[in-house]
Structure formats: C-alpha cells, structure tokens
C-alpha cells in the first residue's frame, strides 16, 4: 500500500512540476519576448538573411524564364511609368516647397517630412501568412515603431496599374529587422476616412470581432444616419503622428450593424477589402518621419 501511495505521490509531484514548468516557461517567454526577438534577430541576422537571400535568388531566376520580347516590353512600360512618376514628383516637390514657404511666412510650425525606404520581406511565417511578417530594415535604417508600410495593390480588370496601398504598421524594431503587423491580421488599428462620404472610422478597433471569412478588414465606429456606398475608396485619415493622410487602404464591400458596447444606433461598422495584395507581397516601401 505504502509502495502504491509513494508511486502516486511521485506521479503527482512529476505532473505538478511539469505543469509549473510549462506555465513558467510560457510566462518567461512572453515577458521576455521583446528581448528575445531583438537579441536573436540582431545576433543571428547574417544567418537569417541567408534564407531570404536564397529565396530572392530563386525568385529572380524565374524572371529569366520569360521571353526577351516580354522582358523588353516590360522594360518599356516601366520606363514610361517612371517618367510619369518623375513628372508628378517634380510637381509635388514644387507644391511642398510652396507649402513650406507659406508656413514660414504665416509663422505656422513646419510639418516634418517623410523618409521613404524600399525593402523586401526577410521572414514570413506560413501559419501567419497574412497577419504578420519581418522586413529587412531596422532601427539602424531609421525605422521606428508606428511607421507605415506600403505595398503594391491588386490589379483588377478595372485598374490599369498597381498603386501603393497601406499594407501594415511596424510594431517592433531591432537593429536590422522590423516586425510588421498587416491590416488583415486584425491587430493594426488605424484611423480611416471614406473619400466620398467624408466620414471617419477606425480600422480593427473592435477587438472582440472574429476574423471574417473572406479576409475583409473591419472598419468600426462609422457615424450612423449617413449614406455609404459599396466600392467607396477608404484612405488614411492622418490622425496618427506617423501616418500621412490620403494613402489608399481599400474599398468598402459591406455595411453591417454595430456590435459594440456603444451600439446605441450611433455607429455602424463596415467591411472593407484591403487594396494591398497580401498574398503576393514582395517589395515594400516604409515611411518614417524625418
């Protein structure tokens, strides 16, 4: 009997120790996650960049499978796009200089500009493919938490070209890498404005909402008693310090009733289809405040 009870005591003690170890390991990992992320990302950066380098080399080789005629046509198209963008950029620079001068004359505080960084994805978790990814630039390159990330939009039958659309927000930054939360993951919260109806709402503000079936993103706290159109473009409102106004986010697909605590017929929610092509993200532009 004493042998059996001793065996039961040993088993119970082993189980208790195992459970405590699991809880402690989870708590320590969660508590030190930021430290672990920065340390391992910086220390192992040359090792980690090997996998993205190999992936990039393989992807680049697929370009060589295309015919010379196709490649020449693509180069011509890119040249003409480049020249159009250069012309627009020249006009925009003139407007910016004029704005700066007017602010100086009127003694209004100058708005700091943005730096544009062109980068690629370093690591992507297949189980969080649309929710989060790691990019190849970090604090050494000027990236800060809260910086926005832009990617090429989906090109549909109605579009003639891809435009840059909001893809996500930088959450955590190490020396050489930055973790980006994408819009479709539900964790990135941004103020958004509907261009046609001029209403302001907040993307992913309802943290209790379940992810939608078709990867739409939620736009919460839109004013009720207004007319909204399906297909209406949604852009950034510019309320956040690091996010300029007017950047395309997506298009409204559905207006749904409110399901928040504040549902007193004051607000409605909407579903919007993000413009960024999360499945085929490769090249990104990160904006940081100067």
């Amino acid at each position: 009997m004493s042998k059996a009870s001793s065996k039961y005591r040993k088993t119970a003690l082993t189980v208790l120790l195992a459970v405590l170890s699991v809880v402690m390991l989870g708590a320590l990992f969660h508590g030190f996650r930021t430290f672990f992320y920065r340390f391992y990302s910086d220390f192992f950066y040359p090792y980690l960049s090997i996998s993205s380098g190999i992936g990039r080399t393989v992807s680049d080789q697929t370009i060589l499978l295309r015919s010379k005629y196709e490649l020449a046509k693509e180069i011509e198209r890119l040249r003409s796009d480049n020249q159009l963008l250069m012309a627009r950029f020249t006009v925009a620079t003139e407007a910016q200089l004029e704005n700066k001068e007017l602010r100086r004359l009127l003694a209004i505080k100058e708005m700091p500009g943005y730096r544009y960084l062109y980068t690629t994805i370093l690591r992507r978790n297949p189980l969080e493919w649309r929710e989060r990814f790691i990019v190849n630039y970090g604090s050494e390159d000027g990236i800060k938490p809260g910086s926005i990330v832009l990617a090429g939009s989906r090109v549909s039958e109605n579009d003639t070209e891809s435009v840059l659309a909001l893809c996500g927000i930088v959450r955590d930054v190490s020396k050489h890498t930055a973790e980006v939360l994408s819009l479709s993951g539900g964790a990135a919260t941004i103020a958004a404005r509907l261009e046609s109806s001029d209403a302001v709402g907040f993307i992913n503000a309802d943290t209790n909402a379940l992810p939608s079936r078709d990867q739409s993103t939620r736009l919460n706290f839109l004013p009720a008693h207004r007319e909204y159109m399906v297909g209406e473009p949604v852009v950034t409102a510019g309320f956040e310090e690091n996010i300029p106004a007017g950047i395309l986010i997506g298009h409204v697909t559905e207006i749904i009733g409110g399901n928040t605590v504040l549902d007193n017929r004051l607000y409605v929610n909407a579903l919007l289809r993000p413009a960024a092509d999360f499945e085929n993200i490769r090249f990104l532009v990160i904006l940081t405040r100067q």
């Binding site: 390991l25 989870g26 990992f29 969660h30 992320y37 192992f44 980690l48």
Partner: peptide, 20 residues
C-alpha cells in the same frame, strides 16, 4: 528548450508553441 525557443522567436510567436 534551446532550439525550440530559437525557432519560436524567429517565427515571432508570442507563446512558445514550438518549444512544447
């Protein structure tokens, strides 16, 4: 413990699923 934590950190998990 060692390599499970490494892969969890590289994958960006908030909880050490891979370690377990």
């Amino acid at each position: 413990l060692i390599f499970g934590i490494i892969i969890d950190v590289f994958s960006g998990w908030g909880f050490p699923w891979h370690t377990f």
